[in-house]
Design a protein around this nucleic acid. Structure first.
Lengths: 352, 352
DNA sequence: CTGAAAGCGCTTACAG
DNA sequence: CTGAAAGCGCTTACAG
């Protein structure tokens, strides 16, 4: 906040023009208390001197930093880049800069990250909480992006509806025996998605849930999911709560000689970067990140403006859930008994 | 930068204790000009009042914002999360906050992003430039992370060496006919990697390069790479310059009935999140992001300290390239003529 | 060891 | 329409 690396400050412009700093300030902020001609002269001079306003000076005077924080549980998570990008864009449009913080690791780190952000003077923050964390008692407005079923949530995708769309799509393709693949049964987001999938499939469908975390605890990280076996046992579709798990299922099926989508359909979630790239391309569901970010930032800014330098901050209350969009790609085909039976033997030949 | 949401500022502590603000400042900054007992009393009082120093006040006085910028060409790129995370961590360790900026789109956006960062008072910035961009004439120290062969580069992975390790590994496994998969021939990073791969394979190997961008321009986005056909024509390995392209090749091979690694090996680059998760797990090469980030931030901070509020900034000069680490996983096996010949017919059956 | 004073750059009532 | 003055919170010589 050295401001004038380029040298000029308000006073410099003022003295160069023989006017007061107050007038320069008024002219540049365009509040209209200065004559048009003088304003114009000041603007030109400012440009000429390469004037860059000092955020520090302004912040000190107004108590506003023009910066919000973004707390992410794990920046390396493949979904968060989308969030970060959307938040940055929305914040920028609202005139705010974005300071990032990674709550990587544990809840203590999250609290620490939040505190550091406060020390750095953020006016508010958007936080994507760690699993099972409640954000309480933060000294500034907070918008929480999590899951509609999480208390204190501000905005999020309608994960349940996303699941419902997937489930309905599979049902329409004729799938009646579906394996749902989740990672962690403690995740609100995952449970919302799974609930939606089940509901979308309808009561006539058989479902079972494969929890990767439990499986890996038993068999070691990176162990096979055993999806090919599920196909032998009659399952015709795999609905994963993330494109990452869908990818895992897809490649394991292929490696074991099962044709996707002829013998088994695979769906994911989130439209991650590889979804359109793999063969066959993944059917998935996408959240409208831009909209979520807009809502989060709008709510945050409203709260910041409403408070207008109070002594206590707080959590912005529940607002809305954003619809998800189904993206149908080739990994998902009709359940065709004859073909499935047909290819089982071929698969057998190849698998060994 | 409202500082005292919690209320207390230096003056409040001072008057509560009947001392001067200067003394409080000295005590809290620990520069040792205050008696131990008084220091302790001040520290306790500060804690009690929930004192949070005003960055704005300090910044205005010292001319230092304690913030650096991070400019990324596309936050949604799967590799950048790792960069962002590492930079955030390194900056945090050095006492700096990180303001993010996305130069998404074009070069004009990049310039604009840089300017906005300057307006926000960053003391320096780390930039991962857009392809083919030179960063010049920025009003603060800049560390550039790109490729050793890019002029003005500050730190980066040794992409050539990473390629070399991949190439040598494939050569040791007996591969003599390798397809290199790149995206864009204009990328310094990709060219470095490809040069390394060729060199690692040695002069006895036949190589050809498949440029995805050109292919897609002819055949449309998401078109098949035709990798199975390459196998029929005698290629036994595919070395991609990114795990994303490796994944594309892998799934396409599997979909076309080619067994990986028995009939063809596949390697990637960057150890992206799915590399260990797919079946077979991808052999790849990883950059030491933590080290790269440390070097970038160290160089940046040194430059910031050296300048100590000059009128001109500039680019931190060339420094170093960081070794890459080969990660061998199952996607990569020995070239075994007999087995390859053996499975070709099976592949043929399935392919149609 | 402690304090009084000045000043970083800005904005905002308030006077004129 | 324009200006003089005060003050946001901090740190840093300088005196004592």
């Amino acid at each position: 906040m050295t401001s004038g690396r380029a040298g000029a400050n308000l006073a410099a412009i003022a003295s160069a023009l023989g006017v007061s700093a107050a007038t320069v300030s008024n002219a540049l902020s365009g509040k209209g208390r200065v004559s048009t001609e003088l304003s114009e002269k000041i603007r030109v001079k400012a440009e000429e001197l390469g004037y860059v306003p000092s955020i520090a000076g302004r912040a000190l005077r107004t108590g506003r930093s023009g910066v919000v924080g973004l707390v992410l549980p794990d920046i390396a998570n493949p979904l968060f880049p989308q969030i970060a990008q959307a938040i940055e864009k929305a914040a920028d449009a609202a005139g705010y800069g974005v300071l990032i913080a990674d709550s990587h690791g544990n809840v203590a780190k999250q609290t620490q990250a939040i505190n550091r952000l406060i020390e750095r003077g953020v006016e508010g923050m958007v936080v994507v909480p760690r699993r099972g964390t409640r954000i309480g008692n933060v000294d500034c407005p907070v918008a929480v992006i999590d899951s509609p079923s999480t208390p204190g949530n501000t905005v999020s995708a309608d994960h349940w509806d996303g699941g419902f769309q997937i489930g309905r799509h599979l049902a329409e393709l004729g799938h009646r025996n579906v394996v749902i693949i989740g990672n962690n049964p403690d995740s609100n987001v995952q449970n919302d998605r799974i609930g939606g999938i089940r509901s979308g499939l309808g009561s006539s469908a058989q479902t079972q849930t494969l929890w990767i975390a439990s499986l890996e605890k038993r068999n070691g990280a990176g162990c096979p999911l055993g999806v090919a076996q599920k196909v032998m046992q009659g399952s015709t579709a795999f609905a994963a709560v993330s494109d990452l798990h869908a990818l895992r299922a897809l490649t394991e099926l292929q490696r074991d000689g099962i044709n996707v989508p002829e013998q088994a359909s695979v769906t994911g979630f989130d439209d991650l970067i590889w979804a359109p790239v793999v063969t066959p391309a993944l059917t998935t569901v996408r959240m409208d990140m831009a909209k979520i970010a807009d809502l989060a930032i709008t709510a945050l800014v409203r709260s910041i403006d409403a408070e207008d330098r109070p002594l206590s901050g707080g959590v912005v209350a529940d607002i809305s859930k954003v619809a998800m969009e189904l993206i149908v790609r080739r990994s998902c085909g009709p359940n065709n008994k004859k073909q499935a039976a047909n290819t089982t033997s071929t698969a057998g030949e190849l698998a060994s």
